[in-house]
């Protein structure tokens, strides 16, 4: 199990936590979404909010305690949620948190090469953070973008249809402190076939007139 799935050592744990005034407001709105008596359901969005607020993109134990107090639930119930879901980091990560999918579809499409490229370009192994604290890379299980395999997630964005070259390009842009364009790196827009859309062409502005489209669909 990755060290990110274990609580950070005491030396790294901050001694106090509180939402910023803006996040206080957001938290209030989030809690208000749930029906009376079900406020504890807000635990997941609040943990996410706490993770985004914390330097190092993680949820310290004090933040979990803070949320437990806020939602009037035992702290252990918050710990259970935070330790179950892998989107919550229990220890600090780099500024760019790279999660490369290595589940079967991505692996068949070359995810091993993507991992190797990251290792080579960043000089770190799986689960490690660069010395400057800019990058952390881990392998993850299926992120649900198999049509565009292989893929990786960096912070909130998906980068899909990767090759070693495009992977390197993305990392280079990130190293400059800029943000690369998210989505498929192969030129396709979404999850249509790699050689262009086959259906509803008329509506996406990339094919024949509607009546023809009907006929061609029938053929296919």
């Amino acid at each position: 199990m990755s060290h990110l799935r274990r609580p950070a050592p005491k030396e790294l744990q901050p001694t106090s936590f509180a939402f910023t005034p803006e996040n206080q407001e957001k938290a209030k709105k989030i809690i208000a979404k749930y029906p009376e008596g079900r406020q504890q359901s807000a635990v997941m969005p609040l943990l996410d909010l706490a993770q985004r607020q914390t330097e190092g993109n993680w949820v310290p134990t004090v933040a979990m305690d803070y949320i437990a107090d806020m939602l009037e639930m035992p702290a252990i119930r918050v710990y259970e949620v935070a330790t179950f879901y892998t989107m919550y980091n229990l220890a600090p990560v780099g500024k760019n948190f790279i999660q490369v999918c290595t589940t079967t579809p991505c692996w068949l499409r070359g995810s091993a090469d993507v991992v190797d490229t990251c290792k080579k370009e960043l000089g770190i192994g799986v689960g490690e953070t660069t010395e400057d604290g800019q990058f952390t890379m881990i392998e993850v299980e299926c992120l649900g973008a198999c049509v565009n395999a292989p893929m990786m997630q960096i912070n909130d964005d998906y980068y899909e249809d990767l090759t070693p070259e495009t992977t390197k390009a993305i990392l280079d842009v990130l190293k400059k402190g800029e943000k690369p364009k998210a989505g498929p790196q192969s030129g396709r827009k979404g999850c249509e076939p790699i050689d262009g859309p086959k259906v509803l062409k008329a509506f996406c502005g990339c094919g024949a007139a509607p009546q023809d489209a009907d006929a061609s669909e029938g053929d296919a």
Binding site: R5, T61, M73, I76, R77, Y79, E80, T83, F84
Partner: peptide, 25 residues
């Protein structure tokens, strides 16, 4: 501990093969 004793100390933390029963801290 949650229902009868009323002290929320014990929990099932982590997941899958790594699941552990106990207090997180």
């Amino acid at each position: 501990s949650e229902e009868v004793a009323g002290v929320g100390t014990m929990g099932a933390v982590y997941r899958g093969e790594d699941t552990e029963v106990g207090p997180y801290i």
